[in-house]
């Protein structure tokens, strides 16, 4: 069992937790993920690691309540335990393997969307510790759901943008990146982490701007160790497993339409489970469709 040491609600539906998992805390690197299971009947849910403290033995996760499992996770309090918490899985960001001199010369721009902000934080913090301060565009639909602003500002040159213009640059992350580009900013690499649709549009833009772009894919997974192939996606015409070959890939080579389609595989079933978790039942009667 893996004890929850801290819980913080970052917005109305985004939660941060520190979990005691010393093996992961000791071996994690930015870019990697872990798999969590709430209880004995729960699904295995992959989450990107956002921070880790080897000394305290804790690992930080940030998640949004989007389905039945994350809704159940959000009900847990400090002192409660996850049934399972396994990792670190996947390959670390290849920035971690670059010679430091080369890394320090690189002009990097991170793009963080929504709950994808958390894994970007892990990378920015690691870079900051290596003496590299990267640019970062953090996007949110609106000011009230923006998360981790102070943390992000502490480890990067932060540019915030909101879709509704309530804070920072008026527009989505692509508008913000184009704006920085038009102002004369040039980057050797963009690293985009967020909803698939956001990463897809960022890749379309950076292809035009000719900036190599890395994305972090988060498809449906079961075991997370290469065993099941549920997370397979096409990258440059080849089948790759996000869990062992990724989760980070060359964004210009990822087949996004297919990857997005595959996310819909269990949509109906997930929706039903979410209702069950929230309302205790899915059959309220009266709709005429139940039997």
């Amino acid at each position: 069992m893996f004890r929850i040491e801290r819980v913080e609600a970052l917005s109305s539906n985004i939660y941060l937790m520190d979990v005691y998992a010393p093996r992961i805390a000791k071996n994690a690197l930015p870019g990697q993920f872990l798999i969590v299971r709430v209880d004995e009947e729960g699904e295995r849910i992959p989450l990107t690691i956002c921070d880790y403290d080897a000394e305290a033995g804790t690992v930080q996760i940030v998640f949004q309540t989007v389905g039945a499992e994350s809704y159940r996770m959000a009900q847990l309090k400090k002192g409660d335990c996850f049934a399972d918490f396994v990792g670190p899985l996947g390959r670390p960001s290849d920035l971690c393997e670059m010679p430091l001199e080369e890394l320090r010369k690189m002009k990097l721009c991170f793009i963080a969307g929504g709950v994808g902000t958390a894994p970007v934080y892990a990378q920015l913090k690691w870079l900051k510790n290596q003496g590299v301060t990267a640019d970062c565009i953090q996007g949110a639909r609106s000011k009230d759901i923006l998360i981790m602003e102070d943390d992000m500002a502490a480890v990067s040159n932060l540019y915030i943008c909101t879709d509704d213009g309530s804070y920072g640059i008026n527009g989505n992350v692509c508008v913000a990146l184009q704006k920085l580009y038009d102002e004369g900013k040039r980057y050797d690499r963009v690293i985009a982490i967020g909803p698939m649709i956001m990463m897809k549009f960022v890749c379309q833009l950076t292809e035009k701007l000719e900036i190599p772009t890395i994305v972090s894919m988060n498809p449906i997974m079961v075991d997370g160790t290469g065993m099941c192939g549920a997370c397979r996606l096409m990258v440059g015409g080849e089948v790759k497993f996000a869990c062992v070959d990724g989760p980070e890939f060359d964004g210009h080579k990822v087949d996004f339409p297919q990857a997005m389609q595959r996310m819909a595989l269990y949509k109906t079933e997930e929706g039903r489970l979410y209702l069950e978790a929230k309302e205790g039942a899915t059959h309220h009667g009266g709709c005429g469709n139940c039997n």
Binding site: R23, K26, N27, D84, F85, V86, L89
Partner: peptide, 9 residues
């Protein structure tokens, strides 16, 4: 359980 040799250690 939950220990992936090659990853967790």
């Amino acid at each position: 359980t939950d220990c992936v040799i090659g990853k967790s250690t």
